[in-house]
Design a binder for these strands. Sequence first.
DNA 1: TCAATAGGTAATTTCAAAAATATATGATGA
DNA 2: TCATCATATATTTTTGAAATTACCTATTGA
Lengths: 224, 224
Amino acid sequence: MLDQVGSTETIGEKTYRRIRSDIIFGRLTPGQKLRLERLSAQYETSIATLRELLNRLLVEGLIVAEGQRGFEVMPVSPERWHEIAAMRELLECHALRQSIESGDVEWEGRVVAAHHKLAAMEKQLLSGDRSQTETWKRYDWEFHHALISCCGSKALLDAHSAIFDKYLRYQIIAVVFRGEAAAREHRELLKAALKRDADAAAAVLVKHIRDCVQYTLKSGALAP
Amino acid sequence: MLDQVGSTETIGEKTYRRIRSDIIFGRLTPGQKLRLERLSAQYETSIATLRELLNRLLVEGLIVAEGQRGFEVMPVSPERWHEIAAMRELLECHALRQSIESGDVEWEGRVVAAHHKLAAMEKQLLSGDRSQTETWKRYDWEFHHALISCCGSKALLDAHSAIFDKYLRYQIIAVVFRGEAAAREHRELLKAALKRDADAAAAVLVKHIRDCVQYTLKSGALAP
DNA sequence: TCAATAGGTAATTTCAAAAATATATGATGA
DNA sequence: TCATCATATATTTTTGAAATTACCTATTGA
């Protein structure tokens, strides 16, 4: 009766999600060489299957391939960080405006629910518990995604998801937790969205992103 | 001494470009099932190599994979066409404004040169010669790309290239040639860019894209 | 007549090994 | 000493075939 999501999933699919997550959460580090034999042993798959998913990550911009010299994890740099942040700003602000304009009560419910979960996690983080980074980041994504979910364009949502994950990788690498400031901005975002004040919401979002970039650059985690 | 671009290119790379081009130019039609054995014979490569490049096209959104039931060319629909056009509008307008602001004389030279080539091709098309569609479309891309080339963000340029090719596929499928109207808009775009009038340029670009969408939808080529 | 199931066929997915390419090592000559 | 070339090793790329999964057909039972 129920769809057993894992049952029909191929091992290529599973390994893809694993390696993708390992890159985003820094377990595979920027610039790291990805030797096929080593990956094959580590993830317990054949080289051909690995190459399939490596080609997917290549197009996503999470790894690079230099000629016939194999793959490596996409390096990080302050320039790239600025570009990714600017791209998120462009896509998310636009989607946010559209979504605020056409969101219904159902949408409001999703936004409120997502913020509730995120706020609870942020409270826990502020009390010193840093153990659940992945869950926290998932809630962060779910809130931002809920906000733009009524933008009306699947293409836009997909592009946003892709850039959000790259943005997330930089946050993880820099071990960013802006504490109360970020939590406040999330509250302001919620308030502006429910008031259907698109200009205010967009302004908060821009500040949210730019302050995060400044914060991480000051921390020096991206320095060579 | 010279880089022989084709010499070190793998057959996977070559086949990737071939199949990608076949999709964009409609030689592989929307919704068409891509049977591996058939492709293997047609493009003279092994199935494993094919699957690598098919996975790349998957992430690019040019093909779809449904469970363990193989690949097919991404179907087309009026909804998707609107989304792709809106995405191009968002990315290209933004990049255009940035580029007009920071472009130097070198940039102006590239823009003028690209327009010259495009205009020559458009003249040829207006005289009835429709034989060189691929070259025409390449010149069209080169002009639009030249305009935004000083936007300062490689990430933005990459995203634009990706969406432009998807946009192009719809144009090809609908056999669009708006003739003098499109040529005029290109001239206006050139003029506004050289005058550094970003607002005017963006306005022309928006009209350029929206008129093209309306034109193709009226033609009925995307109807089911 | 129809639904359900079993069996066979066709397709995709995965693997292990061969072929091609790149990198490292050492020998040669100026 | 240094650059150059040849050889050997390591790594990637490509292949053909085995394993798995989906699809089609026909048979059974109600």
